[in-house]
Every structure is written in C-alpha cells, then in structure tokens.
Computed example of a mutant assay.
Amino acid sequence: MKRFNIFYIAAVVLLFGACKKDLSGPSVDDNILNYDIKEIPVTQDYVVGAFYTSFGGWNANIKEVPVVGTYSMPNGVITAGVMGKHIDYAVKAGLNYFAFSFRSPNRDANNYKSDSTLVRAFINANGEGKMKFALTYNFNTNTFGGISATNPIEKDKLRMGQFYEDFHRIIPYLKDPNYMLVDGKPIVYIMNAQTLFSDNNKAIYDSLRGLMKGWGVTPYLVGMQDRWTPPARYELRFKDCVDAIYHQSLSSQINNWDRWYLLPQTIDQNWKYSKDYFEKNFRADYIPNITPAYSWKINTPTSTNPEYPRSDSGALFSKLCNVAKMNASSKTRLIMIDSWNNWVEDMQLEPSASYGELYLNIVRKQFKK
C-alpha cells in the first residue's frame, strides 16, 4: 500500500508539471513579428527613384496643397515652371531619377502622346542634367485586352509585333545622356508584367532583348508583381525573363488590419522571403518600393479600410525606409518610392504647405551619406 501511494504521488506530480507547462503556452516573445525596426546606418548611397504620376485634375477631397501650388497636366502639358521646381525639390531629397509612364502608341495612342509630352517637359526642364529619368511601360489589359492564360499573346501576331514596336519607339530616350543606367544598362520598368500572358515568356523576353540589342541598347528590365502575392506565383512570367522585380507598394491600399498594426514588420518579412526566393530561383534582383502615406478617403470618403496617415515626424515612413534598406540588393542598391506626386491618393513625396519638406529630408537622411 505504501508503495502504491508513492507511485500515485509521483504520477500526480508529473501530471501537474505537464499541465503547468501546457498552460504556459506560447508567448508574445515567440511571435515572428515581435521585433523592432532598427535604424540602418548609410555607409554607401542608395540609388533612389520615384514614380512620377500624370493626373488630370484635383479631387475636391484632397486636403493637401503643393508648395508649388496646384497644377495640371492636360494631355501631358504641365503647368509652366512646375517641372523645374519638381526637379529642384527631388535633388534636395537626393532622388536619382523620376520614372515616367509610357503606354502603347499602337494600342493607346492618346495616352502615349500625353506620356511623351510629359517626358519631353522633363527633358527640357532638366537642361543642366540635375537628375536622371527612366520609363515605365504600362502593360495592362486595357491596351492589350483579350490576352489571357488561355489566349496568350503569341496567338495574335499583330499584338505581338506591336509589343516589340512599343519598345522600338523609346530607343532614342534610352540613349539620352540623362537616362538612368544600372550597371551601364538603361533601366526599363514593366508595370503589370505578371499579366504578360505567354506560352513562353522567356522566349518573349529573349526576342525583346535581341531586338533591342540590334537597336543599340542592352536593357535592364524590371517586372512588377502585384502587391502581397507570393513570389512563386508568377514563375512562368519572370524566371529567366527580367533582371529585377518589384511589388506594387505594400504600404498603399491596405485593406487588412492585421497587416496594418505591424506594417513595417509584415512588409519586412514579405520582402525578405521574396528577395531570397527571386535571387535563388529567378536569378533576379529585388527592388523595395515604399510609399510616404496613403488615404482611401480621397476617392472613397466612406471607406473603413486602414489609413496610412502622415505625422509631424514621419516616423512610420522612416521605419519603412529602414525596411527598404534591409532588403535592397547589395549589387544595385536600388529603391523606389511610389510616388513623387500622386496627390489623388495622398501618396506624394512632393512638399506640401502642411508638412513642408519633411519627407524630402527623411529620404535624404535615410538613403544618402
């Protein structure tokens, strides 16, 4: 009986210990997102570009006012003197270049003319060569409607030819002395590259590179992937096709509160995984793309989605700058900002009457020695 009591007590002690251990469970310290974003010192300048937005007018819900005054660019004709001021402010921020949209002259002729006019305005205002410029080819279903996974571009010889011709038309820009080069190659962004549906994307890009080489240019091609998508989703569209990949800004159009509460950490984890995957599997560099702020309410006043607001210190944007530094390619050190002047979503880096040059100063401090 005595022996039984000893065994019974031992069993109770072991059971209590096991229960106690289970009850303790995981803690907040175990969470993968439980860490601080540290300040990354700049020992070498980063190469920073900003997407330049073309827009028709000012939404009545826009509360911010540009320091240069409200301006317009109907058909690409920007208000006199504004482009020169934009260049001067961008230089203050340490920006290396603006990235301008260009659309297909064959599929979207009016917008192509507007895009060309705006780029020409930059070239004319940049006579002293204060900064560089690059082009972003807007491949989308509006200009190449009907192209899909079941109807690849190769099935339409006319559109296939027009796709190549679009790049032929920009060759003079790519040879401009103030065009942005990466490793000696003109950088060309391809927006919505994940929708370039083809039976063999590598063959498409190989042909494009061959043609461009014949036209005297060896490009550095950068494909865009839509926001918050896993890196393996578009292997057929990117592997052995592009030199680098960037995501649509993860800090814009936030519609998930879980991501919003720890935005810098969730972006950091997404980029770390994506960068590693792209480098190992696609042999492509990664380009972090950050946004100064974002508001749903300008276009949708009743929106209940999370806002990414500005602050007196710009603290959240500063954290995102550090996340970008942590995930930039060690080879190219490229970083993008979306955008320079997208006022219709409050994404602009451009100075405003309310926050002045705060965001320009943050960019220079975060990315330049």
Score class of each variant (00 low, 15 high):
1 M>P: 03
3 R>M: 03
4 F>G: 00
8 Y>G: 01
9 I>F: 09
11 A>R: 07
15 L>H: 02
21 K>Y: 15
23 L>R: 11
35 Y>N: 10
39 E>C: 03
39 E>K: 14
41 P>M: 06
44 Q>F: 00
47 V>Q: 12
51 F>K: 11
56 G>Y: 05
57 G>F: 02
59 N>F: 01
59 N>G: 03
63 K>M: 03
65 V>D: 04
66 P>Q: 05
68 V>R: 10
68 V>N: 01
69 G>N: 09
71 Y>A: 01
71 Y>I: 05
72 S>H: 10
75 N>A: 11
87 I>A: 03
87 I>P: 02
89 Y>A: 10
101 S>D: 11
101 S>M: 05
102 F>M: 06
110 N>F: 02
115 D>C: 11
116 S>F: 03
121 A>F: 05
122 F>D: 03
125 A>K: 09
126 N>S: 07
127 G>Y: 07
127 G>P: 04
129 G>L: 10
137 Y>P: 03
138 N>V: 14
149 A>E: 15
150 T>V: 14
152 P>N: 14
153 I>F: 09
158 L>Q: 09
158 L>E: 14
159 R>H: 04
159 R>A: 04
163 F>R: 02
165 E>G: 02
173 Y>V: 02
173 Y>Q: 07
175 K>P: 06
175 K>T: 11
175 K>F: 03
177 P>V: 08
180 M>T: 02
184 G>F: 11
184 G>S: 12
189 Y>A: 06
194 Q>H: 13
194 Q>F: 09
197 F>W: 15
198 S>M: 02
198 S>C: 08
199 D>E: 15
200 N>W: 06
202 K>N: 05
202 K>T: 10
209 R>W: 03
209 R>V: 13
210 G>P: 10
211 L>V: 08
211 L>P: 00
212 M>H: 04
214 G>W: 06
217 V>W: 10
219 P>T: 08
222 V>Y: 01
224 M>V: 09
228 W>E: 12
228 W>Y: 15
229 T>I: 13
232 A>P: 00
233 R>H: 03
243 D>F: 03
246 Y>C: 02
247 H>I: 01
250 L>A: 03
253 Q>M: 14
253 Q>R: 15
256 N>T: 13
263 L>K: 07
267 I>C: 13
269 Q>D: 07
270 N>T: 11
274 S>C: 09
281 N>Q: 13
282 F>L: 13
288 P>R: 06
299 N>W: 11
300 T>V: 13
300 T>Q: 13
301 P>F: 08
303 S>N: 08
306 P>T: 09
308 Y>R: 13
309 P>W: 04
319 K>I: 00
320 L>M: 15
326 M>L: 14
327 N>L: 07
332 T>K: 10
336 M>L: 14
339 S>W: 00
339 S>M: 12
342 N>H: 12
343 W>F: 15
344 V>D: 09
346 D>W: 00
347 M>Y: 00
348 Q>K: 05
354 S>D: 15
357 E>D: 15
365 K>C: 01
369 K>Q: 07
